[in-house]
């Protein structure tokens, strides 16, 4: 899909979420769903399979998120999947997150962690990254077991890598 179309979808989702008054919550839920979508082959294949009718794909989304996410989030994802743009869902959501952050004069800080972070850890991490980059941040934490341990933070073009995976790769390349 072209960038303009992705941007159009992102803008539409953003406006709906803002109109519903649930932008922060919907943005966070969409972001987490996008990461799950990327990491699960089965989910990705199901929601992007053109042979499966749109209403069936939307029913899958409903069964996955029903009761676990806001109805706005469920309906927005169902709309994208039903229109046959499931393959571009992560890109659309990432654009939406950027747009939401920009609307609040924030920069997205994507943090990959081997374990889930507590609210306190997230707050301190957000403050530490803001201090390091000099920017106000919208922190997004993704649990990624491939990191093994530690954290990898990406703010714009800046990557701060404190993961065990990277250290292990460095040792391996030296060997």
């Amino acid at each position: 899909m072209s960038d303009a179309r992705i941007d159009g979808y992102a803008r539409a989702l953003f406006e709906i979420a803002r109109a519903e008054g649930t932008l922060d919550e919907v943005e966070d839920e969409l972001f987490r769903f996008a990461r799950s979508f990327e990491s699960s082959d089965q989910l990705r294949n199901t929601l992007t399979d053109e042979m499966i009718p749109a209403d069936k794909r939307q029913a899958v989304v409903e069964s996955l998120l029903g009761g676990k996410a806001t109805s706005t989030t469920t309906q927005l994802i169902g709309m994208v999947v039903g229109s046959g743009r499931g393959r571009d869902l992560p890109a659309i959501i990432d654009k939406l997150v950027q747009r939401a952050s920009s609307s609040k004069q924030l920069e997205v800080a994507l943090v990959r962690s081997a374990v889930a972070l507590s609210a306190d850890q997230q707050a301190r991490l957000k403050a530490a990254l803001s201090n390091a980059t000099g920017k106000e941040l919208n922190l997004k934490v993704v649990v990624d077991p491939s990191v093994l341990g530690g954290l990898v933070a990406t703010v714009g073009d800046t990557v701060i890598d404190g993961s065990v995976r990277t250290r292990l790769d460095n040792v391996k390349s030296r060997l």
Binding site: S113, A114, Q121, A127, A132, G150, A153, G162
Partner: peptide, 11 residues
């Protein structure tokens, strides 16, 4: 410990 160490170093 790794997480805390990362936060401390970045901060």
């Amino acid at each position: 410990s790794l997480v805390e160490n990362f936060i401390t170093k970045v901060g």
